[in-house]
C-alpha cells in the first residue's frame, strides 16, 4: 500500500519538471510580449494602440483549453521546427505565453502609468532623452510596481499549466491522475496531495512578491501614494 510520501514523490518526480518548465517559459513569453504590448498601448500611435488592445481582448476572451486545442490541433504547422514528439508541449507553452502576454500587458501598462508624471518631467528637465527617462526612471519603478500583480499572474499560469493533461503531457495533474488510476481507491488522497502541492508552489511566491512587495512600495511612497 502506498503512503503519502510515495504519492508525493511519484507526483513530484513525474510531473514537477514539466509543470515548472511550462510555467517559466509561458511567463517568459508573456513577459516579453506583455512589455511590448504595454509600450504600444502607452506610447505608440493610434493604430498600434488599437492593435495591442485588440490582441488583449481576443486572448483574454478565449478559454485556455480552447487556445491549447487551437495550437495543438488547429495549427500544428506552427511548430514545424519542433521535434514532433515535443509539439504538444510547444503548443501549450505557446498558448500559456500568448494569453499571459495579454494579461501582463495590462499589468505593465498600469504600472507604467502609475509612475508619477512629475518624476518624468524632472528627468526631462535634467536633460534626459525620452528613452533615458524610460530606462532609468519609468521602467525601474514600473517593474517594482508590477510585482504584486505579476506574482498573481504566476499563480494563474502555474495552475493553468494543468490543462496540459488534455494534450497528453505528463505534468503534476496528469501524474496524480495516473497514480490514482494505478492504485484504485487512492483517488481522493492523491488529488488532495496534488492540491496541496499547487498551494505550496503558489502561496510563498504570492506572499513574498504580493504582500511583502506591496508593503515595501508603500514605504518608498511609490505608485502615486
Amino acid at each position: 500500500m502506498p503512503d503519502l510520501a510515495d504519492i508525493l514523490i511519484y507526483i513530484v518526480t513525474k510531473g514537477l519538471a514539466q509543470t515548472l518548465l511550462m510555467t517559466v517559459l509561458g511567463l517568459l513569453i508573456g513577459f516579453v510580449l506583455g512589455i511590448i504590448l504595454a509600450l504600444m498601448r502607452v506610447y505608440a500611435g493610434k493604430e498600434l494602440n488599437w492593435l495591442a488592445s485588440g490582441y488583449e481582448k481576443i486572448f483574454r476572451g478565449i478559454p485556455i483549453l480552447v487556445l491549447i486545442y487551437i495550437f495543438a490541433f488547429g495549427v500544428p504547422e506552427l511548430f514545424w521546427y519542433v521535434d514532433p514528439l515535443q509539439r504538444p508541449l510547444a503548443s501549450i507553452i505557446f498558448a500559456l505565453g500568448l494569453r499571459s502576454g495579454a494579461y501582463q500587458s495590462q499589468i505593465f501598462r498600469g504600472a507604467i502609468l502609475s509612475v508619477n508624471p512629475g518624476q518624468i518631467e524632472a528627468a526631462r528637465a535634467l536633460g534626459m532623452s525620452g528613452l533615458q527617462t524610460f530606462r532609468h526612471v519609468v521602467l525601474p519603478q514600473a517593474l517594482r510596481l508590477a510585482m504584486p500583480s505579476w506574482s498573481n499572474e504566476y499563480s494563474v499560469v502555474i495552475k493553468d499549466s494543468s490543462f496540459a493533461y488534455a494534450v497528453g503531457i505528463v505534468e503534476l495533474t496528469r501524474a496524480a491522475y495516473n497514480f490514482s488510476y494505478a492504485f484504485r481507491g487512492f483517488w481522493t488522497v492523491s488529488i488532495g496531495v496534488l492540491a496541496i502541492l499547487y498551494f505550496l508552489l503558489t502561496y510563498p511566491i504570492t506572499k513574498l512578491f504580493g504582500e511583502h512587495q506591496t508593503k515595501k512600495l508603500k514605504k518608498l511612497g511609490m505608485g502615486g501614494g
Partner: peptide, 27 residues
C-alpha cells in the same frame, strides 16, 4: 539645452526608487 537650465519643482519630484545621493548623481 536642458542640462544648462536646472529646475526645482513645487512637489520636489524626486525619483522615488533612488536614494538622495542617486537622485543627484543620476543626471
Amino acid at each position: 539645452i536642458r542640462t544648462r537650465i536646472g529646475m526645482v519643482f513645487q512637489h520636489f519630484n524626486l525619483f522615488a526608487h533612488l536614494k538622495a545621493i542617486d537622485n543627484v548623481s543620476i543626471g
